[in-house]
């Protein structure tokens, strides 16, 4: 779906995106994570042909960007750095103008397409109000409606839940999962770990312009080979599991060993009550913190 090879963008002497090799496959919900200023938006803009790469190549649907963007982009829906509309016009008029601007815009089916897109994002009852009277969340929904208007095979969404309340976020998540189930590939750029963790099947992490990680979420969150035990009698447990205890925090023990059932049997046989038992999995946050440096909006003087 999306393949980049050594994609690089320099603004003057600043390297915004540095030799990034993205690989998004059909059917993925790909989470593109990165701190503010890590180069996410620049990458997204390059994928869409808005910013021209300094070096490297991009392919969407197997076709080179920006050379073949007129063939490729009609199959892509995008939300880039927040929605943007003509404030003095109603949402439906905005969508209809947007639809009429590009190719393959059948006039007869336009009305239906606009209504469908508005219904999908929960704005069908919004009426003739001008967009400038919309709330932040409504504008975001209208932005999504714009991305969905052409029934795209690939959605490239930059911070799609920005400005939405928890209920709205939940709705959008369901919407994206539903679209994905029907075959839409979703490329989701965000700095919100929770959003990516709940939604995505694959994750790419950008840090200071470099892609430091690109793996299926399931692999990242695979068991670490350690087990967490909470017990009423931690001292007895430590004695019993001598040498295998890697750490202790109150009644919480970290045990070397990937089989919780075996540890449980050992403890219970010795009469140590077990409150909680689980194979340790790192959260996405822990994985990412391990592999990235401090946020790139933190500007420190170089230490000598």
């Amino acid at each position: 779906m999306i393949v980049t090879h050594q994609l690089t963008k320099k603004f003057g002497s600043l390297v915004a995106v540095d030799q990034v090799d993205l690989d998004v496959q059909a059917g993925d919900i790909y989470g593109f994570l990165g701190a503010n200023g890590s180069g996410k938006t620049t990458t997204v803009r390059m994928l869409l042909g808005l910013v021209l790469a300094t070096a490297g190549s991009i392919e969407l649907f197997g076709q080179p960007i920006p050379a073949r963007r007129h063939q490729v982009l009609p199959r892509v829906g995008a939300l880039i750095e927040g929605p943007a509309w003509y404030g003095h016009l109603p949402g439906a008029t905005n969508l209809s103008l947007f639809d009429a601007s590009g190719p393959n815009a059948g006039r007869r089916s336009r009305r239906t397409r606009v209504d469908d897109a508005l219904a999908q994002v929960g704005l069908s009852g919004v009426g003739r109000r001008p967009v400038k009277a919309y709330s932040l969340g409504m504008r975001q929904r209208l932005g999504l409606a714009g991305a969905l208007l052409r029934e795209p095979e690939l959605l490239i969404l930059d911070e799609p839940t920005n400005g939405l309340d928890p209920q709205g976020i939940h709705e959008i998540r369901d919407l994206l999962l539903g679209l994905n189930a029907r075959g839409t590939t979703v490329f989701l750029s965000s700095h919100l770990l929770a959003e990516i963790e709940q939604l995505c099947t694959r994750v790419g992490v950008l840090d200071k312009g470099r892609l430091v990680l690109q793996e299926p979420l399931a692999a990242l969150r695979a068991p670490t080979g350690r087990t967490i035990v909470r017990t009423a009698d931690p001292d007895a447990a430590v004695r019993l599991l001598d040498g295998r205890v890697l750490g202790r925090q109150g009644d919480r023990l970290l045990i070397d060993g990937e089989n919780p059932a075996q540890i449980n049997a050992l403890l219970v046989a010795a009469g140590v009550a077990v409150h909680e038992l689980a194979a340790e999995r790192l959260s996405l946050e822990q994985v990412i913190l391990q592999r990235t440096s401090a946020g790139s909006d933190r500007v420190m003087a170089p230490t000598s």
Partner: peptide
């Protein structure tokens, strides 16, 4: 940006 990715 939206016009250009529509694409126009």
């Amino acid at each position: 940006r939206y016009l250009l990715v529509r694409p126009v």
